[in-house]
Amino acid sequence: MDNWKTSARAFWAAFAPPTFWLVAFFIIPLSLIWLYSFSSKTGIIDTTLDWNLNQYARALEPLYLGIFWKSIWMAAATTFISLVVAFPVAIAIVFAKPNVRMWLLLLIILPFWTNLLIRTYALIAVLRTNGFINNGLEWLVVHADWLLSFVGLGDNTLIGPFSPLHLLYNNTAVVFGLVYVHLPFMVLPLYAALDRLDRSYLEASLDLGAGHFRTFFSVVVPLALPGIASGVIITFIPAMGSYLTPDLLGGTDSQMIANVIGNQFKGANNWPFGAALSFLLMYATFFALAIRAFLMRKDGRGTK
């Protein structure tokens, strides 16, 4: 292949359009929002760029720090649950027959073909008071009571009336929704890491007397660490910045930091404060990525 210096026109023809797109529609708008974070609101819609840190100081008040911490622990809970659920799923896909593996991967990717809003409303239909879960539990209670009465062990009042479970508009619903949305982001990196696993290590571990659990924690998990790290990062970061899921599934005390940012830009019309909150979230994202890069380098990966 010719060096790019000898075919500069072809290089710039391929390089210029994506660079222009990145600068015009990402870097410049993001830079404007960054400038807003150092501005002051002087009217209902007016702002002045006076290079102050007042918006960042306000963002560090206990109220907003509490929302930040809530977002962090909800994203951490989402990531942990996704990891626990995704690991056996990824292992099952890896050890499945090749023709079955293709269909299993398709089932994992299939949710991406549906709009997130539609999937969230479908989840609401499952979790609401008159939803599928409560209706199913009510059916079980009614028929269990009838069955006990039929065999002479009850009088249709043994179990009692069914009280619907409150599954929506709380923190649990938000975490469940976040796991529902982000689970594929954990499965795919784990599958990619486990698919490259040398199965002779597993056979050697079992032949040397280690049980399945010890083999899993002593062999499989360490060899899958790159996939675990990638899955944790690409699950935790989007979960912490989620807006739609807590907005539709959460209650008044279930707002995450993205909801507060959205309210500042739309409801309160306070762009400087919304920009400061946005960039604090971005700084936290960069910090998480830096920690991952440091750990990977310390572990000897990514140095070549």
Rank of each mutant, 00 (worst) to 15 (best):
L127G: 04
F279L: 14
D247T: 13
Y191A: 06
D198A: 03
I27D: 05
A122T: 01
I118F: 11
V100Y: 08
F265T: 13
L165A: 14
M186V: 11
L140R: 00
V175E: 04
W271P: 04
L116T: 00
L295E: 06
I91T: 09
L206N: 04
I228A: 05
P272F: 10
L117I: 09
R301V: 02
W146R: 14
S205F: 10
I133S: 06
F287L: 15
I133H: 07
V175T: 09
G152M: 10
W271K: 08
I45K: 03
F132R: 07
M296R: 11
L280S: 08
F286H: 01
F15P: 06
T215D: 04
M282Q: 03
Y201K: 07
G66K: 10
I261Q: 02
F213W: 03
M74H: 02
T172E: 06
M186A: 11
L225H: 00
T252D: 06
S200C: 07
M240E: 06
D155T: 14
F279Y: 15
M1K: 08
S40R: 07
S37M: 14
A96Y: 02
L107Q: 05
G154D: 09
K70T: 10
S39D: 00
P88I: 02
A125H: 06
S31E: 00
L223V: 07
I44D: 01
L117W: 00
L53I: 12
L183Y: 05
T48R: 13
V260R: 12
N263S: 13
V23M: 13
T47D: 04
I93F: 11
T114S: 11
F38G: 08
V232E: 07
V220K: 05
F216H: 01
F68I: 03
L188N: 07
Y243T: 02
N156S: 15
P111D: 10
R292H: 10
W21Q: 12
N52F: 00
T285F: 05
N54T: 01
